[in-house]
Nucleic acid binder design. Structure first.
Lengths: 82, 82
DNA sequence: TTGTGACTGCGAGTCCGTC
DNA sequence: GGACGGACTCGCAGTCACA
């Protein structure tokens, strides 16, 4: 799985856990809503500074955004649920 | 510690473990030597796609480049050794 | 062998909108 | 609520010469 998709699924997972919308998270993290959408879908290529801002907004460590296992699991269950 | 410094120390640590120069690693990973130098010193802000290329060239997972503990330890010992 | 400043092209990141 | 588009700005990717 691509790093961008890994990050995307992890971001979506952690955001959903907190039960907030992309718009609310965008304002929290100080990013554009459309940009957050792109990151979640894995079409954007964020820099590590962006990653840090996202991690801080989520209250987790940057490394957690790159966790392959959790991303894969969440992606699989998300596909099953839809 | 800044994410960029974390990545920098981890890259330097893993590269030194393999006993190769910045120049050799640059050719291996397909980057410019000056750019690698900047990433190691934490003055560059690489994108996640760059991170993946570096990780592949090192033969490790991207998450390992963001490991805070190993980076801090190596940085401390490096300062002690110099 | 590595650090560093300066440079250009292009993509990251923003703001508007529609569906 | 979220996907997706266009147009825009600014900063990063990638390179080189020199210390």
């Amino acid at each position: 799985m691509d790093v961008r998709q890994r990050i995307g699924w992890n971001l979506r997972r952690l955001r959903k856990e907190r039960e907030i919308s992309q718009e609310d998270f965008a304002t929290d993290s100080g990013f554009d809503r459309g940009y957050i959408s792109g990151v979640e879908r894995g079409v954007r290529n964020p820099s590590v500074l962006v990653l840090e801002r996202i991690a801080v907004a989520l209250g987790v460590d940057v490394a957690e955004l790159l966790d392959a296992q959790l991303a894969t699991r969440f992606a699989a269950s998300a596909i099953r649920l839809c």
